[in-house]
Design a protein around this nucleic acid. Structure first.
Lengths: 141, 141
DNA sequence: TTATTATATCTTGACATCAAGATATTTAGC
DNA sequence: GCTAAATATCTTGATGTCAAGATATAATAA
């Protein structure tokens, strides 16, 4: 029914905006954008990755990835390394500086989220997460 | 707990992105941005409104509103009308052209959402909506 | 009344992102 | 093996948005 759908869309937008407004502020305090943070975080937890893989993970286009990796490279946080087997592919690799930064920052980010969401019960959070994932897979694209 | 929060954030981002990717595509087919659509929709359902009120509703800054209203005005869909009682305020007003456009488009948008979310049960949608609103009000800003 | 503060809108400059096309390399079909 | 199609990345130009400050008007306090 139409009303239900509209309300879901509005609730999603409002929650997303409020949530990421706060997350953004926090990550900006580390002099990073969310995309830059996302790249570093993926590399920390999954090891060096092809540009393409990171783009899929953080939900940006290839053009955006070029620019994000450029910025991280200029800050000395990552390097590009050409793949031996497939010369089209560049791996994005953490430098020691990048690794120590994200290793220091990531726990702070997690702690920040803990504070932000401390009023919400574990059960509700799990329920919302499950339901969002459920609705996501049911989207008719 | 940290894991639960991270999962909630990721689920929120993924659902929001997927949902608004589709919504965006649909609204672009009407040659409007989401913000422009939001303005027209608010005016249709709530009558002419001060710039400020519309900005709060569609979650953009005053600077963005200036640009969005400019664009709508250039398309002949809205007008600015100075408030008699408070000369600081501009009302954004639908033109006949703007009104007939949004009156035609809005039902299409609603129908599009119906299709997009038709696989999801009413109960789940209502539950997600309620939970998102609940979590939103519990955010520690 | 006058000075201060608050409010509403606009201006400017910057930025993150995207879409579309360019380039280079690999894979697949003939 | 050679051509065509697919894939990975980069380039370019445009766009939507924001933050911070400017301007104009209104409300408040002295």
């Amino acid at each position: 029914m139409s009303e239900t759908n509209l309300k879901l869309v509005i609730a999603t937008a409002r929650f997303y905006n409020a949530l990421f407004l706060e997350i953004n502020k926090n990550i900006q305090s580390f002099n990073l954008t969310i995309s830059e943070f996302g790249v570093l975080e993926m590399l920390l937890h999954k090891g060096d990755q092809p540009v393409q893989k990171v783009a899929e993970k953080i939900l940006v286009t290839s053009g955006t990835m070029t620019s994000v990796v450029d910025k991280l490279q200029n800050k000395g946080l990552v390097l590009r390394q050409k793949c031996e087997k497939d010369q089209r592919i560049f791996y994005v690799c953490l430098t020691p500086k990048g690794r120590s930064l994200i290793a220091k920052i990531f726990p702070k980010h997690a702690k920040f989220l803990d504070g932000l969401l401390s009023e919400v019960s574990e059960e509700i959070k799990k329920e919302v997460t499950n339901n969002l994932n459920l609705v996501l897979t049911s989207l008719n694209k």
